[in-house]
Write a protein that binds this DNA or RNA. Structure first.
Length: 668
DNA sequence: TCCTACGTAAACACGA
DNA sequence: TTCGTGTTTACGTAGG
């Protein structure tokens, strides 16, 4: 995993360098075009244009990389792999700087999100809207400063009233800008909620509502006109060339015709160039059908225009006349681009936040806060012997395959160093046990990976057996069903059956947590969750620091549970569903969190909190140990009902009669 | 160094 | 007798 990430980063770096050179080329073209018009770009605006071009180029590079990865993964894992490669890509979000969207970030965004191009486009457009406002504010702040400077200069000449009026107009304009920004922030929040849902694969197209094309209300447009109109030649000489060189496409003609410039303006306005060829197909389709991004329902959708055009030709005429390449149009284009970029930035930040939240909820809540790599769940899994001990026939897995596990979310360069491959041979420590990582979530997230790659799952046999049993509808499995689960879920266990089957049997017999129940049809195996959880407290019981962590983590139970419930409620998913029901991701998350809560609660109980005179419900429940304390045959039914409670919250009803659970003996 | 957990191998018993 | 299942023991390794 980490080597893969490193490789990815490397390849990305080279690609990005290419992209940067392309961006520079574009910039040169733009500058050439501007110079051909006899204008000298200001330093400030050139820098901004460079940013535009680089970011747009980053889009294209990211998209190309995504495409390449999809192609590559499609070639590498053709079998039993119907999901798009993007779904299997490791979901890892780097903690990126929220200020600038780097090409790497854009690539990560593209990699992480399973979005259709249409959805992506909508998101980009909405991001643009937000960026527009910031740029507008900056733009008019500068203008205001200049105006004030001029005002000071002209006060000596006695021209004060007129300039003050202009300043007043600009202040009003900025006020409205602020108001609009607030409104769009609200809209963005809605967008984020929808975006949350959109992450789930397999869902229909996002119900995203594209922002209205007229991002600038008519009032603002009027103000714009007034302000820009008030600025006569002396100001445009200082500022307007900054807007004239904003063309983001490399127009080869040295003397750009009106038409070509118009096309540039249109494209820029709608963020098409930022998306690159992502939308080219839809654009061409729209043009073929006489639809235009700036034309709809007989109205010109140029920001702030809304002029009524009876037909497409009149619209084109209107476009040529009213929105030709002038100061106003180019400024609007520029502003629109900034809107897109700002929205992209905002989106990336919010996705990053979401990912951090998800990661936090996935990671064991008892993780020490000071751990420098709290998210590296496998980095400590030793590989020292895996390579040598691995059976020679079980190493087809290439580290660079995109079908790498997701759960060991890697975030920092320090994480991307030690363990990029999952364990391919016998290892002595499985991180699921060591770090209490929810096995269910890992298996759920990396299901395709484990199914296709002959990589040994980083879990102990006991954890796997338990997971197999808990995943079953009845929470009980025969030995043969456990075998089948192993072979079905993990390609690794399709080999050396004698070895691992023996190990499975050995574990079933050895661990008290596995309870054998005689069934009508034979014997089934169930899980004594309490016993399973007991193994770890025993291990760490003597470590005060760990106990402290556990106790600290106990305080997280309530907010975690609350967050989970809120999440479930928001998604209309029952909190206590089985793994086989409902949204697999969320239900697995729920199971994982229940595991966390179970463990934490039980750790807390085992650490002296059992001040109650009697046993806790779970303890009372688990006093039936078939192996350790052979009881009379009648009590052997105990574990059956016991296991059915394994999926319940630890704070279940203490008065509940667990033997009243639907007994599974007759079910199977 | 000791203890514990884990993985692996193997022997053995039992029943279909 | 064979095979599957289940139990038990032994040994080596890794990590705390």
């Amino acid at each position: 995993m980490m080597q893969e990430s490193g490789t990815e980063t490397k390849s990305n770096g080279s690609a990005i360098q290419n992209g940067a050179s392309s961006a520079n080329h574009l910039l040169e073209c733009s500058l050439r075009e501007v110079r051909s018009n006899g204008e000298t770009p200001s330093v400030e605006v050139s820098a901004a244009d460079l940013t535009h071009l680089q970011q747009q180029q980053a889009f294209q590079v990211a998209r190309q990389l995504l495409y390449q990865q999809q192609q590559a993964s499609g070639l590498k894992s053709p079998k039993r792999n119907d999901k798009p490669a993007a779904l299997q890509a490791p979901v890892s979000v780097a903690m990126m700087s929220p200020q600038v969207i780097t090409p790497q970030q854009m690539q990560q965004i593209l990699q992480q999100q399973v979005l259709t191009p249409q959805q992506l486009q909508v998101l980009l457009q909405q991001q643009q809207a937000l960026m527009l406002q910031q740029q507008l504010q900056e733009f008019y702040k500068k203008q205001q400063e200049q105006l004030q400077l001029q005002l000071l200069q002209q006060q000596h000449a006695g021209k004060q009233p007129k300039e003050q009026q202009v300043v007043t107009q600009q202040l009003a304009f900025q006020q409205q800008l602020l108001q609009m920004q607030q409104l769009q922030q609200q809209h963005l929040l809605n967008l984020q909620r929808q975006g949350l849902l959109s992450i789930q694969p397999g869902q229909p197209t996002l119900p995203l509502q594209p922002l209205p094309q007229g991002m600038i209300p008519a009032e603002l447009q009027q103000l714009w006109k007034e302000v820009t109109g008030a600025h006569t030649a002396e100001e445009t000489a200082n500022n307007n060339h900054s807007t004239l060189d904003l063309s983001t496409t490399c127009v080869t003609s040295s003397a750009p015709s009106k038409t070509s410039l118009l096309i540039n303006a249109h494209a820029s306005t709608n963020g098409q160039l930022s998306i690159g060829t992502l939308k080219r197909e839809s654009l061409s389709h729209e043009e073929q059908t006489h639809s235009h991004p700036l034309y709809g329902h007989g109205v010109c959708k140029w920001p702030g225009c809304e002029a009524i055009c009876e037909d497409f030709h009149s619209f084109l005429k209107h476009l040529n006349n009213e929105h030709a390449l002038d100061d106003r149009s180019t400024a609007q284009c520029r502003v629109q681009m900034q809107v897109v970029q700002q929205l992209e930035l905002q989106l990336s930040k919010d996705k990053e936040r979401l990912q951090a939240m998800m990661t936090h909820l996935h990671v064991k809540s008892t993780e020490p806060k000071a751990t420098p790599q709290p998210l590296n769940l496998v980095s400590n899994v030793t590989l020292s012997k895996t390579a040598s001990e691995a059976s020679p026939q079980s190493l087809p897995h290439t580290p660079t395959t995109p079908t790498t596990p997701i759960t060991p979310v890697t975030h920092g360069p320090s994480v991307i160093t030690t363990t990029s491959i999952h364990n391919v041979g016998p290892i002595r420590r499985r991180y699921s046990d060591k770090y209490n990582v929810p096995i269910s979530s890992d298996i759920a997230q990396n299901q395709e990976f484990y199914k296709n790659a002959e990589v040994r799952p980083p879990f102990t046999y006991a954890s796997l057996i338990r997971q197999a049993i808990l995943e079953s509808p009845e929470k009980q499995l025969t030995l043969n069903e456990i075998y089948n689960w192993f072979t079905r879920m993990f390609a690794y266990f399709r080999r050396n059956a004698a070895t691992w089957k023996n190990a499975v049997r050995h574990n079933l017999s050895l661990h008290k947590c596995f309870v054998r129940v005689e069934n009508v049809k034979g014997a089934v195996w169930t899980v004594d969750e309490q016993e399973f959880q007991k193994r770890r407290p025993q291990k760490i019981s003597g470590n005060p620091s760990l106990i402290k962590n556990i106790q600290t983590s106990h305080a997280y139970c309530t907010p975690l549970n609350a967050a989970l419930q809120a999440s479930m409620a928001e998604n209309s998913i029952p909190l206590y569903t089985t793994a086989s029901m409902g949204n697999p991701t969320l239900s697995n998350l729920a199971i994982a969190m229940r595991e966390e809560l179970n463990g934490v609660m039980e750790h807390a109980n085992s650490n002296g909190s059992d001040s109650s005179p009697g046993r806790s419900p779970m303890q009372a429940l688990h006093h039936v140990h078939v192996k350790e304390e052979p009881l009379d045959p009648d009590e052997n039914e105990g574990p059956l009902s016991l296991v059915t409670t394994a999926n319940h919250s630890p704070d279940f009803d203490p008065d509940r009669d667990y033997e009243d659970e639907p007994v599974n003996e007759d079910m199977e």
